[in-house]
Computed example of a mutant assay.
Amino acid sequence: MPDLTIRASDAEIMDDFDLPSSQIEPVLAGLGKVNALLGGHKSLIKALKNFPIHTGYSISDWGCGGGDTLIAIAKWAGKNNLQLNLTGIDVAPAAINFARKESANFTNINYLQADVITGTKHISPCDIVISSLFTHHFDDERWVTLVKNMQASARRGIIITDLHRHWLLYYAIVAITHVFTRNKMARNDGPLSVKRAFKKAELVALLKNAGIDNYNLTWHWPFRWALIIYKS
């Protein structure tokens, strides 16, 4: 049994921003499929409706990875006659290159390579900042900095979805990654992501440290937190 009493601090292989495309693209493609299959895209779009979203709004995805979340939003917006300006931000050049290829058919999706902790001067303000399965990559101190940066950038609010640290999810991911893939990064980073994830009390404490009290935090299957932060 792994120690899940506190968040792990071990770096994931994916945290190496200089990884070549040949290593990162298969993992990003797999993550996109998992997000779609397990309802990650649907839960984020459901959260977007809480604002609500109007034509002309700009949405920025921090830690966009392969761009799968923005593509899902673009498809949903198209079906609902919403014209949205979508931007994906990631510090890894291989991720940005892959996302651009995946989003080639969507003229309203753009990408920017930038560091969301130290490079926010390069990031334009937007209506809503979103982030999917990304914030667990940061230790507590940098998590607070990240969310404060999101607050400064977003005019209307923030949506964060991330993992719930739980033994059942941990062993499920261990089993899935060992049955369905031989990819070293997936087998290492999948279970480690759970060890770096959050319990509710930790998220509440982090939000307090960030000076944020206008939010809604809910649990969703399979073992995910949905955090909506409102600016007003």
Rank of each mutant, 00 (worst) to 15 (best):
E102T: 04
F138V: 01
I24Q: 05
G65V: 07
H41Q: 14
I128V: 15
T55Q: 09
Y57C: 10
E102L: 12
I212P: 02
T5D: 11
A36E: 12
I173K: 00
D162A: 13
E12P: 06
A77W: 00
Q113G: 12
I158W: 08
W219A: 13
A172Q: 03
A175E: 02
L163P: 02
G56Y: 06
M185R: 11
P191Q: 06
T161P: 02
L86V: 03
S9L: 11
H122S: 15
G88Y: 12
L206N: 03
G39C: 13
D213R: 12
A95N: 04
K46E: 15
K199F: 01
I117V: 11
E141K: 13
D90H: 00
A201P: 01
L37Y: 07
N108I: 06
I59S: 05
N183F: 01
K42A: 14
K101L: 11
I24V: 06
G66P: 10
L169F: 08
T161L: 05
I117W: 07
A154W: 00
N188E: 00
A205Y: 10
A152D: 14
S60H: 14
W221R: 09
A186Q: 09
G190K: 03
W143Y: 13
Q23G: 01
G56T: 10
Y171F: 11
A197C: 11
L4S: 07
R156A: 09
N80L: 06
R165Q: 10
M185L: 13
A104F: 09
Q113M: 13
Q113E: 14
R196A: 11
H178A: 13
